[in-house]
Amino acid sequence: MLHFPGQGPVTPGDVVVGPLDLAARVDEALAVQAVAFGLGADEIAVRRQIVLRHLAFPGARALGATTADGRLVGFVYGMPNDRGHWWSTVVEPYLRGQGHEDWLDDSFVITELHVHPDYQNRGVGRALITTITDGAAQPRSILSAIDVESPARGLYRSLGYTDLARQVLFPSAAKPYAVMGAPLPLLRR
């Protein structure tokens, strides 16, 4: 069962979604990402520096999903998109080719969303992404996900995200990605 801050008592086994000081808990968050995404120690070391750099960008925000005993089991972070950011420069030609380049403007980008496998399929990812985008000032959201049919892509579609570009190749990624976008607020069940 999920509880949001201020919406009732937390009982053992529940997960609470709320603000996260991601810089202070970056190693815990990346441990979740490593298990959820199958990353090795070298990849985590690189991502640690990226996360800390992203948190310095204007408007960057993070949420965490914690158990009653304070264990971090999921996290999301994002920020207003900026065409000068590395991610935008990589996806821009793919979006332009599909007539969706305008999605890079006035969008809130979901940079990372990961839930520990033991807590997947319980609504944790849905709660994280809807809560962070509900606080966005932008009218839409964009993200990238590995371009395969997966539970993550299914979640994003159920929230209103659609494919804007597929087979997007990032220089450091072995698999192609899809860029997805959705109007805000995201769809609810």
Rank of each mutant, 00 (worst) to 15 (best):
H100W: 05
R122V: 07
L95C: 06
P171D: 13
P19F: 05
Y119H: 12
T11N: 08
G160R: 06
Y177P: 04
P176H: 07
L55Q: 12
T111E: 12
T133C: 15
L128M: 09
S88M: 08
E149V: 14
V15W: 02
R48F: 11
G78K: 01
R188D: 08
T133L: 12
D163V: 15
R126E: 13
G78R: 02
L95M: 09
K175H: 11
H3Y: 02
T130M: 09
L104T: 12
Q98I: 05
Y177F: 15
T66V: 14
L95S: 05
E43H: 12
N121G: 06
D14K: 08
G99V: 10
G123F: 06
G160M: 09
Y119I: 02
V46L: 14
Y177G: 06
P19L: 12
D163G: 09
G123N: 07
L2Y: 02
L159K: 02
R25C: 14
A145S: 13
A23Q: 13
R25Q: 15
A31G: 13
A31F: 08
R157H: 13
V179W: 05
D106Q: 11
A29C: 13
V76Q: 04
Y77P: 03
V109G: 04
D147G: 03
R48N: 11
S158Y: 09
V26N: 13
A152E: 01
G64A: 03
Q98L: 03
R122K: 09
G18M: 11
M1I: 04
D82A: 10
E101D: 10
A36W: 03
L128I: 07
R53G: 11
T162G: 14
E43A: 15
W103E: 09
I142Q: 05
G84I: 01
W86Y: 10
R53M: 01
A136V: 05
H3L: 10
G6A: 03
Y161L: 08
T67H: 00
V51D: 08
R25E: 15
G160Y: 06
P139K: 11
D102M: 06
D14P: 04
Y161F: 15
A136Y: 00
